[in-house]
């Protein structure tokens, strides 16, 4: 079973790139060429259609991470790279799984889904397809519990992340303005 990298080694890079043909290939081939491993990858346009955001989870030590960031930044179409500290960011991922059921345990699986606030997407004679959106750790837990019933197919999107909003900084700024 693949689990997420340990916290010390797991790093989230949020890479803002120009939304142009071939940019993802450029990023991916840089990782391959320099021997870095991508754990997960999510790409989509941002609020500004000129740019896309690539969220990459890598599983490396600090010095390698520094090289990855520097090498990535050499790509002409990479506009900004931020490393998101897992402690200071909100992360989400989507998970879908088809689980085998016999008549008897269907209820148990649905109950488990309810506890996790997962959704039942499809019901078959001998299987259920469930979806769950949440933090990657929560998805890990759910996946592990489902495994006992027999997972037929499983798909995860890879995580996306944004920095947590700093409420204190915000209130300071507001105060500054008022006085």
């Amino acid at each position: 079973m693949s689990t997420y990298p340990t916290p010390q080694r797991h790093h989230i890079l949020s890479v803002l790139v120009q939304n142009k043909a071939g940019v993802l290939a450029r990023v991916a081939s840089l990782f391959a060429r320099r021997g870095y491993n991508i754990f997960s990858l999510a790409v989509a346009p941002t609020e500004d259609p000129q740019f896309s955001r690539i969220t990459i989870v890598v599983d490396v030590e600090g010095t390698t991470l520094e090289q990855i960031v520097k090498q990535l930044f050499k790509l002409i179409e990479v506009v900004r790279i931020s490393e998101l500290d897992p402690q200071k960011s909100v992360e989400r991922e989507l998970f879908m799984a088809t689980v085998r059921t016999d008549g008897e345990n269907r209820g148990q699986i649905v109950e488990l889904a309810n506890i996790f606030e997962a959704k039942v997407l499809a019901v078959g004679v001998d299987a259920l397809t469930l979806s769950l959106e949440g933090s990657p750790e929560k998805l890990d837990d759910f996946e592990e519990l489902l495994r006992g019933y027999g997972i037929v197919e499983l798909q995860r999107t890879g995580r996306i992340a944004l920095p947590k909003l700093d409420r204190e900084a915000h209130s300071r700024a507001v105060k500054g303005k008022a006085s």
Partner: peptide
């Protein structure tokens, strides 16, 4: 061509 030369150019463009 751009695929082949991607990792050996500073930049390339079709």
């Amino acid at each position: 061509t751009v695929g082949i030369t991607r990792s050996i150019t500073k930049h390339n463009e079709l």
